[in-house]
Simulated scan of single mutants.
Amino acid sequence: MATYPIIPTSKSYGTPKAIEHFMEAVSQSYLIFYASDLLSDLGYSELSELNEGLARAVAICETVDIPVDENIKLVFRDNQAQLFQDWKLSRLSRYLLMVNGQPSNPTVGHTQVDMYYKLDKLNKTLSK
Rank of each mutant, 00 (worst) to 15 (best):
Y95H: 10
A59P: 01
S90I: 02
K124L: 11
S10R: 13
Y116N: 07
E62P: 01
N123T: 08
K128Y: 09
R91E: 14
P5T: 08
L126T: 08
A25M: 12
T9P: 03
D69Q: 10
L122N: 06
F22L: 15
L74E: 15
S12P: 04
A2T: 05
D65I: 09
T107S: 09
Y95G: 01
Y34L: 15
T111N: 13
L54P: 06
A35S: 11
T9C: 13
A25C: 11
L97E: 00
K121C: 03
V26I: 13
Y4E: 12
A57S: 03
V26H: 04
Y34S: 07
E52T: 12
S29M: 08
A35E: 00
Y4T: 13
Q80K: 14
Y34D: 04
V58D: 09
G14E: 03
I60W: 02
E24Y: 07
A59Y: 01
S90Y: 04
E70M: 06
N79E: 14
A57V: 02
L89N: 03
E46I: 02
P103W: 05
D69V: 06
G109S: 14
M98D: 03
V108W: 01
L47N: 15
L97V: 13
Q82T: 08
V26Y: 07
F84A: 07
Q102W: 03
L122A: 14
S36Q: 03
T125A: 13
P67A: 14
I72L: 11
G14T: 03
P5M: 06
R91K: 12
I19L: 15
S10L: 14
T107C: 00
L92T: 03
E24L: 12
L39G: 00
Y30M: 07
R91N: 11
L38T: 02
G109I: 06
P8I: 08
Y30C: 06
L83D: 09
R77P: 00
G109F: 04
Q82D: 09
D69M: 07
A57F: 01
Y116M: 12
P103I: 09
Q112S: 05
D78V: 10
A81R: 13
D78T: 14
P106N: 05
L39F: 00
Y34N: 15
S93W: 00
Y4I: 12
L122P: 04
L47F: 07
L92P: 05
A18M: 06
E20I: 15
N123H: 10
Y44Q: 05
A18F: 07
E24W: 06
Q28L: 09
A18G: 05
K73M: 08
P103E: 08
N100D: 07
T3K: 09
L39A: 02
Y44W: 06
M1Y: 11
V99H: 01
A2M: 05
L38C: 09
S36C: 06
K128T: 11
L89D: 03
D86V: 05
